[in-house]
């Protein structure tokens, strides 16, 4: 299973999302083909959680992936109500500025 499919299946199993989208954005960066993903997750489990706690929930599900090559996740986590009031729109992710050249 591809990294993208694994991420999607783990989040689907553990967060019961109404909407889920996993987009591979690695081409915008310089760390290989499975390094950067953009996630949009709409789920009831986020209700009552501050943004930082919502992201920690997602990071908790994807700990193995973050240990093994996934470098960064752009996370957009909404409750169904918030998703509806946004009209289903998600902000764009930035492009790479080359920081990985500092890594030996």
């Amino acid at each position: 299973m591809s990294v993208q499919a694994t991420i999607e299946s783990k989040l689907t199993d553990q967060l019961s999302p109404l909407v889920i989208s996993v987009e591979n954005e690695s081409h915008k960066h310089s760390r290989g083909e499975n390094s950067h993903f953009k996630l949009t997750v709409v789920s009831e489990v986020f209700a009552g959680l501050r943004p930082v706690q919502r992201h920690q929930k997602v990071y908790g599900v994807l700990g193995d992936e973050l240990e093994s090559g996934v470098h960064a996740l752009a996370i957009h986590a909404y409750t169904p109500e918030e998703w509806q009031s946004r009209g289903g729109e998600v902000p764009a992710s930035p492009n790479c500025l080359g920081g990985s050249k500092h890594d030996k």
């Binding site: 943004p51 930082v52 992201h55 920690q56 973050l66 996740l73 752009a74 996370i75 957009h76 902000p91």
Partner: peptide, 27 residues
């Protein structure tokens, strides 16, 4: 931090979040 990536914004001793959260809160 229980937070795997950077950047990280800390305000008054608490983790506020990374880029996505900062941008959404800014907007």
């Amino acid at each position: 931090a229980n937070w795997p990536t950077f950047p990280q914004l800390w305000v008054k001793g608490e983790l506020v979040g990374g880029c996505d959260i900062i941008i959404e809160m800014y907007q």
